[in-house]
Design a protein around this nucleic acid. Sequence first.
DNA 1: CGCGGTCTTGATACTTCTCAAGTCGGGTGG
DNA 2: CCACCCGACTTGAGAAGTATCAAGACCGCG
Lengths: 245, 245
Amino acid sequence: MKRTASRAGQLIDVLPRPGEGADADRSAALATLETLGTAVRLRSGQKLVRPAEASDTTFIVKEGVFVSEALWPGLRSAVLALHYAGDALPLAALPQAAACAAVAATQAEVLRFSGTTSLPEGRQLVEYTLSSLLDQQARMALHIAMITTLDAGQRVASLLTEFALRLGRQNGRGVAFDVPLSRNGMADYLGLNADTLSRIVSGFKASGLVEQPGRHRFIIRDWKGFFALSPLNTSIDHLHRRVRA
Amino acid sequence: MKRTASRAGQLIDVLPRPGEGADADRSAALATLETLGTAVRLRSGQKLVRPAEASDTTFIVKEGVFVSEALWPGLRSAVLALHYAGDALPLAALPQAAACAAVAATQAEVLRFSGTTSLPEGRQLVEYTLSSLLDQQARMALHIAMITTLDAGQRVASLLTEFALRLGRQNGRGVAFDVPLSRNGMADYLGLNADTLSRIVSGFKASGLVEQPGRHRFIIRDWKGFFALSPLNTSIDHLHRRVRA
DNA sequence: CGCGGTCTTGATACTTCTCAAGTCGGGTGG
DNA sequence: CCACCCGACTTGAGAAGTATCAAGACCGCG
């Protein structure tokens, strides 16, 4: 089918090529910071928690996906933000009132910095953190926009688009990626009920836009069609696509 | 009535006293920054817009309330965040894809910084901005938690509590404040329909918790009762109350 | 291969949205 | 200073969308 080929052609423009663009910039900045911080490996599910007293500890994600979660008694849990490789995670950015933590959603590796801000070399960390927070703040703003302006189907499409742009690889069948969150985690991120989310994903599969070869694995078969599902997807593309045209 | 007196006693612990605590810290840090930036006065409704090309311009709010707004074609407008005196507003934190701006919600005054980050004195601005962004990121996280976990009534109660803590003054009748947003603005911030918001506020008035002497003026008559309406209010108190116990 | 937890799907109830009509408030001009 | 007028707000009835609950299916782990 000719259209498959043309879709594949577009995908080359859409998905990142390893080692290019922003990836390379990030690596350069990180290389100098690695001498200051200590590397830590985490398994999926391990948590970075803000201690009760004030803390200036900062982590930088080297690899993997993190989820900022909060749980207030009597409320369903909230997923506040997603963090990817390169993101700075200052524990001070977590609200302290509730059980709140950054949880590794996949196997992960981080750099740990503690008390380095006051050192002369600390300026590098401060500037890296600031730049990363600007980025993350824009993403949180978009997250808020998703939740306040979109209906359930558009929200789910937006999140899957984000995952595809961040984690996806193009193959013969489309754009494939492993979802780092459970159904419940995705629902909490989107402010939806998990049952509703399930129904919506089933709808995507029924319409042929998406395939699900395993519980955590997705393939977006029709990128253009899927991308059009959410009016915020062009903005999501700006913030999550790693190679600029 | 004795309970009125006891409520009033509690309010003294709850509301800020001018010139104390965090206010004083902020003033000290700002005093040194004022020589670097240029002061600008804004009228309600004026906008700070991110230019198309990358910009390192940063504003610091000296006075007034700002609203980060975004408008995507075909969607209802989104209110992404609220900014108060002391907040740093780097234009780079605004998503750039949509019509997006920080709008003065009241008469306001800001300090404008442009290209100062590279100067040796710029470190002060960088550190101030970083610290402010950490604060604002925690507030955005709470905003997301509000929208994803609370029902409509709890959301409205949370927002009014925030305004009371930020802008309120205790008087004989309760905690009084001027709402800096229109009904539509509040609804957009909360991800609610303006009609629904109106109904909920009417409910608060009917139950005697709240009074509304003018279109933009509110008085919370029963602080304890009102505070209990939202399970997130203790967290909101942590982030928005300016005097610690 | 079997078990446990996660996911799916249906029927139903409830919250919230939509649309429309009416009311209110406050700023403007006489 | 008062009356007018326009935009913002209020309120109702009905519709739409999403949540809830329960039963069953599936996947992946051991």
